[in-house]
């Protein structure tokens, strides 16, 4: 206490000097901040803004690797993506199928298991670890593992199904089964989302549940009137991130099916990759990238727009 008042007297004494000093150090600090963020800013200019603009430019050209001067073709590439290229359209439909199934299903499974694990059952920590473990598996390794599991003859999945009398399913060798198979595999990674939901569930104040107990609410009421409304911000975040991520699904299809059978798993990113790095049609694939960019943007904005109706951002 005494020390503090002495120092404050000292401050009063040299107020003018202090003010001069802090003004100078403030001016200095004005640009120091920029010095600190400079690496990011350079990266932003080159890798985000620059690359984005370059991509827009390339998409209007017939650029291929090695060509000195790309030919300007205006919107011709876009016309081809949107109507000329049958495979582009097919790959888009395939991707929508995949996103439409894997994102909602993943959210449903993750949320349900988070709810289950949130009740005070024994060994909750162990369960959480087990469910999270597959999310740690590198996607290249996971693809190879599931390639083996999905084998029609003597694959683990068909052997297991055989135990309950189901005939072997040609998971990756028939077009009608290949996409469901990849969706099934994507569910193996739900643990990542589940731990986020679990953290959220544990943040819901227990008074809310106690109060509703007094009002005679049953657990269904509590789930729909308290838990889900309070969890909407997180569900919303995962929905947006899930859409952005799944629209760019690539590695599993590249490693497991190379887009087959009969282009059933030719996802948009795979088609884009083939065009860019196999056929070196850089201009055309840039146009494909821009189209995907706008699709993701519109979807994100749409989710964002409607979120006002179902996302609750009150104090959690």
């Amino acid at each position: 206490m005494t020390a503090q008042s002495t120092s404050s007297v000292g401050t009063m004494g040299s107020l003018a000097a202090q003010a001069r000093l802090s003004l100078r150090s403030f001016r200095r600090r004005r640009w120091i901040g920029w010095g600190f963020i400079l690496p990011w800013f350079i990266g932003f200019l080159i890798f985000d803004l620059g690359a984005l603009l370059l991509n827009f430019y390339l998409s209007m050209t017939t650029f291929t690797v090695g060509a000195r001067t790309p030919d300007w073709v205006g919107f011709a590439n876009y016309e081809r993506v949107l109507s000329g290229d049958r495979l582009a359209r097919l790959s888009f439909t395939n991707t929508v199928y995949f996103v439409g199934l894997s994102v909602p299903l993943g959210m449903l499974v993750a949320f349900t298991l988070a709810l289950l694990l949130n009740s005070d059952i024994r060994g909750r920590g162990a369960f959480r670890t087990v469910f999270y473990l597959p999310s740690l598996v590198p996607v290249a390794a996971a693809s190879i593992i599931w390639l083996f599991i999905f084998r029609t003859r003597n694959g683990l999945l068909n052997l297991t199904l055989g135990l309950v009398g189901i005939n072997p399913i040609p998971w990756l060798s028939r077009p009608e089964w290949a996409k469901p198979a990849l969706v099934l595999m994507s569910l193996w990674f739900f643990g990542q989302q589940m731990v986020i939901y679990l953290a959220g569930l544990q943040g819901i104040p227990s008074e809310l549940y106690e109060a509703s107990d007094i009002d005679g609410a049953n657990s269904i009421h509590k789930l729909f009137k308290i838990t889900i409304p309070l969890m909407t911000p997180m569900l919303f975040f995962n929905l947006v991130m899930g859409i952005i991520g799944s629209f760019q699904v690539f590695t599993a299809a590249f490693l497991m099916t190379q887009g087959g059978p009969v282009n059933a798993t030719l996802f948009y990113m795979l088609h884009l990759y083939n065009n860019a790095f196999r056929y070196f049609r850089m201009g055309y694939s840039s146009a494909m990238a821009v189209v995907l960019f706008f699709v993701i943007l519109v979807l994100t904005l749409l989710v964002n727009k409607t979120s006002g109706r179902w996302v609750y951002y009150g104090g959690t």
Binding site: F41, A51, L52, L58, F63, A276, S286, V290, L292, I296
Partner: peptide, 24 residues
């Protein structure tokens, strides 16, 4: 402003920078 710019790049899908990166 810079912070908002930074946050908005979080939403930028990697696909639109893939080919320009490679060409650079």
């Amino acid at each position: 402003t810079m912070f908002i710019l930074l946050l908005s790049t979080m939403m930028l899908p990697g696909v639109v920078t893939l080919i320009p990166y490679f060409l650079m």
